[in-house]
Design a protein around this nucleic acid. Structure first.
Length: 495
DNA sequence: CGAGTTTGACCCGCGC
DNA sequence: GCGCGGGTCAAACTCG
């Protein structure tokens, strides 16, 4: 048995890498009695011999099975050693009816296996295509960085832009998705890969300035929501590891680590807005390296999608070729009034402002499109966000605070889009498309309602019943807080 | 006693 | 080089 728990055949011939020969029937001296027996090759073409004879003396040499099956190990079809199979072997002298029934079963199993192999092959091809596309994009990104360095060093803006582009590159969750699709990858291996990812990216983008690489951090996703609770309910377990007073904000900033798995690199910061203390600003960084509960999956997908938005947004603004590649990805799933990008922050940050939507006016305009946000299933979040995978709030703000200031706009008013990243204009056609999408209040409000379901109504202006109210006596907003926060969002009833 | 929180100290990057 | 601010560490502390 190999490391994957599958059996390998000692057979001398070399099967395809993805197939093995594995035992279905062990040697049974009482039945074999050192004489030739009939055995069935399940994967021989029916038109060929379905049975062949093997000298049972083979069993004396090794534990080699009497039957050799070629099974694609990735399909986990290692259930061949069943009683029916056993009967196939043992019934060499069975009545013809039994033989026919057995052969019929064999044909059925063989057909099923072929279908599975075909599907497996298609999946492999799809995965290979994704990898090829990713590598192409990465190479293109390296070229872009080189061009930017050449073009912007003269005006003194090169270093900042280069770092930001690198930030976006390293924040690319595409590889994480690929890793998730590789089912054979263990959690530890994914963790290892997470740690190696910057190295891998450095290698793939070869010509990148080393000084820029050293300052690279992951993209962040910031969520602004009205809540009196200490934290929004994202389904994960967090441990507080620090608290600092941030400049310009009387409320302390709390630092949390994900504790759902050892070595999980995800961290988040929680801080109340200085201007409006009912607004809770939660900033996520990193990707989880472990399975998540459904509620946590929704939030993780949201932040992951937002990070991807960062990447795709930069691509749009930079290169027409990227536009074509990402054309299918850039669904503008967030209204510009809800999401913004802050490329000039220390770290590239996507801000999802849930304090402004859905507005009563939007509800009035599209009453048929809404249900009680609290009644929306968690899956809605995933279906509307992660399945589409990309929400591109492409309103570029100079800083996060700008989002808050713009919150005083008229309810339901669609903000004009400012598509600009480091002075790079976005093609007008794309801008028009985005404008059209963000101008759909039904879409905007539906997404907002989905998000609000995650917070258990916590964004509803801080008023009304809030299941999180019992957690108000928390450290946030209390410099000398003595509360022993249990930072387990699973305890929140909002989800 | 273990898990989690608090909080002062420390490190590091960045701007002046 | 220096100071500032953000982020993290870790010992002390609290709580169940």
């Amino acid at each position: 048995m190999d490391s994957t728990g599958h059996y390998r055949s000692p057979s001398s011939h070399s099967p395809p890498p993805t197939t093995i020969h594995f035992p279905v029937n062990d040697h049974h001296p009482d039945r074999c009695d050192d004489k030739r027996i009939n055995e069935v090759d399940f994967f021989k073409d029916k038109k060929h011999d379905q049975s062949k004879s093997i000298d049972c003396r083979n069993c004396n040499e090794t534990t080699t099975p009497a039957i050799h099956l070629e099974v694609n190990t990735r399909l986990n079809l290692l259930t061949g050693n069943t009683s029916s199979d056993q009967s196939v072997i043992d019934d060499g002298v069975s009545p013809s009816y039994e033989d026919k029934r057995t052969k019929h079963e064999l044909v059925s199993v063989q057909a099923k296996l072929e279908r599975m192999n075909g599907e497996n092959q298609r999946l492999r091809e799809a995965l290979n295509q994704v990898i090829v596309n990713y590598n192409t994009l990465e190479n293109h990104l390296a070229m872009m960085i080189q061009q930017k360095q050449g073009g912007e060093n003269s005006n003194g803006e090169g270093s900042t832009t280069t770092r930001q582009v690198m930030d976006l590159a390293l924040a690319d969750p595409t590889k994480a998705e690929i890793n998730e699709k590789l089912q054979s990858t263990s959690s530890e291996e994914r963790n290892h890969d997470e740690q190696l990812r910057p190295v891998i990216n450095n290698q793939n983008t070869g010509n990148i300035d080393q000084s820029s690489v050293t300052t690279v951090r992951k993209a962040r996703v910031s969520i602004r929501a009205r809540s009196e609770a200490s934290m929004i309910a994202d389904g994960c377990q967090w441990r507080k590891y620090g608290q600092k007073m941030a400049k310009g904000n009387p409320c302390p900033r709390a630092y949390y680590r994900c504790t759902m798995a050892a070595g999980c690199l995800v961290r988040k910061q929680v801080q109340r807005c200085a201007q409006d203390k009912t607004i809770l600003i939660t900033t996520y960084e990193g990707n989880h390296n472990h399975p998540l509960p459904p509620a946590a999956t929704a939030m993780a997908s949201t932040t992951s999608s937002a990070a991807r938005m960062l990447l795709s947004g930069s691509m749009q603004s930079s290169d027409s070729h990227m536009n074509s590649i990402y054309a299918g990805l850039n669904l503008n799933q967030f209204s510009s009034s809800m999401a913004s990008i802050s490329p000039s922050s220390p770290f590239p940050t996507v801000t999802l402002d849930l304090t402004r939507a859905p507005t009563p006016l939007q509800f009035q305009r599209n009453p048929e499109s809404f249900v009680n946000p609290n009644q929306l299933p968690q899956n809605y979040m995933q279906s509307s966000l992660c399945n589409h995978s990309r929400f591109s709030g492409l309103q570029m703000s100079e800083n996060v605070e700008a989002v808050g200031t713009s919150s005083h706009s008229q309810p339901g008013q669609i903000q004009p889009l400012h598509l600009r990243l480091q002075g790079l204009p976005v093609p007008s056609a794309l801008s028009d498309t985005i404008t059209a999408l963000t101008g759909d209040p039904k879409f905007t409000a539906a997404v907002a309602a989905a998000i609000s379901s995650i917070f258990g109504g916590g964004i509803n202006g801080g008023g009304g019943s809030n299941n999180n109210d019992e957690n108000v006596n928390a450290t946030i907003g209390n410099n000398n807080g003595h509360g022993n926060n249990k930072v387990n969002n699973s305890g929140f009833q909002g989800n």
